[in-house]
Design a protein around this nucleic acid. Sequence first.
DNA 1: TACAATATAATTGCATACAACATAAACGAG
DNA 2: CTCGTTTATGTTGTATGCAATTATATTGTA
Lengths: 145, 145
Amino acid sequence: MDYDYKEAMKLKYQLCFPLYAAARNVIGHYSPYLKPLGLTYTQYIVLLVLWEKDGVTVGEICDKLLLDNGTLSPLLKKMEKDGLVERRRSIDDDRVVIITLTDKGKELQIKAKDVPVKVAGCVNLTQEKVQALYSLLYELIETNK
Amino acid sequence: MDYDYKEAMKLKYQLCFPLYAAARNVIGHYSPYLKPLGLTYTQYIVLLVLWEKDGVTVGEICDKLLLDNGTLSPLLKKMEKDGLVERRRSIDDDRVVIITLTDKGKELQIKAKDVPVKVAGCVNLTQEKVQALYSLLYELIETNK
DNA sequence: TACAATATAATTGCATACAACATAAACGAG
DNA sequence: CTCGTTTATGTTGTATGCAATTATATTGTA
């Protein structure tokens, strides 16, 4: 039989669709918990990085979050304006900007400590399936860098 | 042992992160093939819906793509301006807007017929893993609607 | 030491996304 | 029939994302 390109083009066969939809779905579950803290989802994952290791460069945050600096540069400026982080040039290399948590930024970690649990509670998948999903996603990301 | 919330808050344990990163990664693989056709990714998945079934309402497209009408309304207007679709009010119900492909919109399907294959070629996962990923993602979406 | 190549951030332009609100049409109970 | 409710779409405001470009600093090398 000939290759049926019209069949192959159906939405349900495109991996991108459920991937993107699932991502937006899960991210959407964060809003109710982040909004009271005055955080957006992207600000939250930036904080996740900084709570793990404070004082990192803009470039490091880009690498860890796999986000463009065109996304993060303005975001970090806004987070500075909101008093969550400080931005200062490195003494060693004046090209580099180092991002540091303020006290307010540090304190937010405790206020946000239940967020992962609450969001996990919204995702109706067994622990095994979540694990399987993790490894597939990380494999996808790693092999396509 | 007490619950270690700082450990649980590490980026690598948040499902949202690899999910969103993988989605953006895969979507990014479309650009090189869509740009020559003058299409963005979102316009492309709207066309996927219309190529499957022409003449659907704005609401149906929102439902199928799981996107907000605040996203799709302006997008469909732009696609009309670009000559890809037509927008007309339903005769039966004047609230409803029906989207129809123009000839140009129909012809694009042939020009785009290799896109799914080419993108699939960029995703370095075995067919079994892709299948596993599909079912997990669809389960995640379905159970969280 | 000049100076081209490279590296790091920031900026600009364009295209989504979604929440919240607005508008207009259709529906439905009384 | 009628008016409050619901439905379908559009608009506004805010926040990402990324490509492409710019600005500045550093590095490598003749």
